[in-house]
């Protein structure tokens, strides 16, 4: 998620949103928010298809982890993405082809070795899986990307006594040392339980800030490409697991506002070869 004002930071990732799309998005997202009666809305990213690209917007109310996603191929009309089941998600993770750009395009799922086993078990089971259309795949891919790589800097969100998570409006940005340390970036996903079992765990822990997993433990090592730009004033983080996920952060200085944000701009394909590529 990122603010439309911060588009210039996306240049560090080598991409941008052209003026037509910017103009379209700025208006249409505002209308979307109003029409769907959400309190918050932001652009999530763009998934590049062969024929058309999908812009993805997200809307949420109180709970930031309960987000609804909308897609648009023309930045004007927005359609809600369907919810998907766990099983569908599993199937979606088996698709490695490019998005086409047609929401109704159907992917025939491979019927791999599994089928043979089921045949042995129960011959009556239908072997043909239901094809998955691109709309569903989009939904699944977003879910996977959010879980795997969506990140925020430490301190930008906090948890109150009631365990509710809020955006930290006083967030000034990470310090110079923290900026280049992967432990200061958190996976932005719910369901993290702080372990305070040992004293060692408790040393640097602030229970209102350390509310997510940090990305330093991500495997394989080097799955994040952290780079310092603008002579140290800005950092960018690119996920190599999901090429296209781009995160930037610049702390507040005399010259700049504190900014952070992320956008996905890619093909929506997970890098399955990451292990050998590092």
């Amino acid at each position: 998620m990122f603010l439309m004002d911060d588009i210039n930071y996306l240049n560090l990732g080598g991409f941008t949103i052209n003026y037509e799309d910017r103009a379209g998005l700025n208006s249409s997202i505002r209308i979307l928010k109003d029409a769907e009666k959400y309190e918050n809305v932001s652009l999530w990213g763009r998934i590049l298809g062969v024929q058309k690209d999908y812009f993805i917007a997200q809307c949420w109310n109180d709970d930031i982890f309960d987000r609804k996603y909308f897609y648009s191929t023309d930045t004007i009309t927005w359609l809600q993405l369907p919810e998907i089941t766990e099983e569908e998600l599993k199937d979606i993770s088996q698709i490695y082809s490019r998005f086409i750009g047609d929401p109704s395009y159907e992917y025939q799922l491979p019927n791999p070795v599994q089928n043979n086993q089921t045949q042995l078990d129960d011959e009556n089971q239908p072997q043909e899986k239901e094809p998955i259309n691109e709309e569903k795949r989009l939904s699944g891919v977003i879910k996977m990307i959010n879980y795997d790589v969506e990140i925020i800097p430490r301190g930008s969100y906090y948890q109150d006594r009631l365990k509710k998570i809020h955006f930290n409006y006083k967030f000034k940005g990470l310090s110079e040392k923290e900026m280049i340390d992967l432990t200061s970036y958190f996976h932005f996903r719910s369901g993290f339980k702080l372990s305070l079992d040992t004293i060692e765990d408790r040393i640097d822990i602030d229970q209102s800030i350390d509310i997510f997993d940090n990305i330093e433990k991500d495997k394989p090592d080097g799955t994040w490409s952290l780079q310092v730009e603008h002579g140290g004033s800005t950092i960018t983080l690119k996920s190599l697991l999901w090429p296209g996920y781009f995160f930037f952060h610049t702390p507040r200085t005399a010259m700049r506002q504190c900014k952070f944000g992320s956008m996905y701009n890619g093909y929506g394909i997970k890098n399955v070869n990451l292990g050998i590529m590092l």
């Binding site: 082809s97 070869n273 050998i276």
Partner: peptide, 20 residues
């Protein structure tokens, strides 16, 4: 060219994996 310098190996389930 703006990218990571890698070729797209393929679009199918099998060819997505780089087989050394």
């Amino acid at each position: 060219y703006i990218g990571d310098g890698m070729k797209c190996y393929g679009n199918t389930y099998l060819s997505a994996y780089h087989i050394p």
